[in-house]
């Protein structure tokens, strides 16, 4: 699938390259960063981009390039964990609702709909503001608002898969509900969840950096991209402080979105011949 996507869709290739680039950076950050991302140098504050500091320095004289490189680890990690945890919660929740059906299903899905209709950003802001600034709390807030999508997809997949004959067969052989769920239903519904997760990754990075911009991420010295852009907002004339971390967010989420678009187009049979 990946090979045929690469052949047909140039934008998908660009996306793959961007993501590979950032993953490499995240892995190698401590080795290749020219300065200590937390190291302050009061004699070198607000330096324009130069050979010594390719992306300039911020209000505490910290090297912005080193901080952007270090920030990639947090962004990728946070995006990945949000998606992973949300999909686990969603798969379990949607799986139970879809498998049991009836009134339980109805009540559970109304609950999920409630979370979805709730203004997400407000819920996330309240949770992180209430629990105090920390990476863990931000992740918690994101998972709380993120899982319902996965629950809905999982539920509809389960309902579809449940009616298949091989599930009937497993039942008549006396398999337990749990066994049927893990051996028959889950393997046959996980594909859609993976697609949704791919398409969603860019959005997760965007929301995470947004919360971090609002001061709801880790406490200050941590090199988070969103928080760095927020630092730069106070010194608009020193454009480099906000620009470079922002380019980090933009390129990573563009990479994820190019991949997501490619996968979506590939799986949509109506568009398949067009891409």
């Amino acid at each position: 699938m990946i090979r045929s996507l690469l052949r047909r869709n140039r934008l998908f290739t660009i996306g793959l390259a961007l993501c590979a680039f950032w993953i490499m950076i995240a892995l190698l950050a401590p080795l290749i960063s020219p300065y200590d991302p937390l190291g302050q140098d009061m004699t070198a504050r607000f330096q324009k981009p130069s050979l010594a500091h390719i992306c300039g320095t911020d209000s505490l004289g910290r090297d912005i390039l080193s901080r952007v490189l270090a920030g990639s680890r947090i962004s990728i990690g946070a995006g990945f964990l949000t998606i992973l945890l949300s999909s686990v919660v969603g798969v379990v929740y949607g799986g139970i609702a879809g498998y049991l059906g009836g009134a339980v299903d109805e009540i559970m899905m109304r609950g999920a709909e409630l979370v979805q209709a709730f203004p997400t950003i407000i819920l996330a802001m309240v949770i992180s503001a209430a629990l105090g600034p920390s990476l863990f709390h931000t992740l918690l807030a994101m998972v709380v608002i993120w899982w319902p999508n996965y629950a809905r997809v999982m539920r509809s997949m389960v309902i579809q898969v449940r009616s298949n004959e091989y599930v009937e067969a497993a039942k008549s052989l006396g398999s337990s509900d749990l066994r049927i769920f893990f051996h028959e239903i889950l393997p046959n519904s996980i594909g859609s969840i993976v697609v949704l997760a791919t398409v969603d990754f860019g959005n997760a990075i965007l929301l995470f950096s947004g919360l971090s911009f609002l001061g709801l991420g880790s406490p200050p010295p941590t090199p988070e991209w969103g928080a760095m852009v927020s630092d730069g907002a106070d010194y608009l004339n020193d454009w480099w402080i906000a620009t470079f971390p922002g380019i980090g967010i933009l390129t990573m989420s563009m990479g994820a979105n190019f991949i997501g678009d490619g996968v979506r187009d590939y799986l949509d049979p109506k568009l398949r011949h067009e891409v």
Binding site: L206, F213, V229, S230, A233, A242, M254
Partner: peptide, 16 residues
């Protein structure tokens, strides 16, 4: 894709 990927807070600062 740029539209759905660009963080609005960053775009706002850059445009200003």
């Amino acid at each position: 894709v740029f539209g759905v990927s660009v963080p609005s807070f960053w775009l706002a600062l850059i445009m200003l």
